[in-house]
Nucleic acid binder design. Structure first.
Lengths: 120, 120
DNA sequence: TGCATTATTGGCAAATTTGCCAAGTATTCA
DNA sequence: TGAATACTTGGCAAATTTGCCAATAATGCA
């Protein structure tokens, strides 16, 4: 017998849960094309919601919600300036994630080209 | 007038799309508590599906699907060994993402403690 | 004060993700 | 060959995410 079948409540992920959920949540806040793009843009300096909105051409409410996800994850911070709200990266270390992802991507492409080249 | 309302097809995210979708997809493969955990475990060396399954206490089919997500993203590679399948990290650079996330987390906690301390 | 600009929130429908079960494949071993 | 082990795939239901449209709030300006 391997283990009892727990039929746990859906939300209740086993012991590794809380620690890993916290970390996964930060990544989840980056793991969307729009939010990844925002992180890239904000790496160059603060931007207001209206600027970001024009860049992606989505409804402003949608943009606002994406930014809320990033804010709740601790990725960005906001600051009121008159009628607008400026967003900026909470820590520059987010930028270090970019090259890591590039490397995974590059390696994956190399690997796929090998497979393509072989006669399998 | 700011811009026409495009009412685009749902999938069809504007110009920044393809480039960022590709990158976001890699992060998405890490942005789940179980898969984040697997990446941590695999950082210590190859593991078979059955080992990983026992660690998280989920159905083996569920574990298999999580690993398939990671494989398709180019995060891990698999290798048959008899009846079992060993998974290992495709590139060690994934590990560099861990400390970045820790830093975001630490900064976020610091910031929240400040707010807690102030009389706002 | 009234109006425009900027942003957030609530609500909803469509899309995606997640996890289980059942069924199928592949390999080892008796 | 037949049984056991290890894994994958299809299908489905529950949960979550995403994006739009109001409706609402906050600020600046005439």
């Amino acid at each position: 017998m391997k283990h009892e079948h727990v039929t746990a409540i859906r939300q209740d992920i086993p012991k590794f849960s809380s620690r890993h959920r916290l970390r996964a949540n930060i990544l989840k806040a980056l793991a969307h094309p729009v939010r990844w793009y925002f992180a890239e843009v904000l790496a160059h300096g603060p931007r207001c919601v209206c600027e970001l909105q024009q860049l992606v051409n989505l409804d402003m409410s949608t943009v606002s919600k994406h930014l809320a996800v990033m804010r709740q994850a601790g990725l960005v911070e906001d600051e009121k300036r008159g009628t607008q709200v400026l967003y900026h990266l909470a820590t520059p270390c987010v930028l270090k994630i970019f090259p890591c992802v590039e490397e995974v991507l590059a390696k994956d492409i190399r690997r796929k080209m090998e497979v393509f080249g072989s006669d399998e």
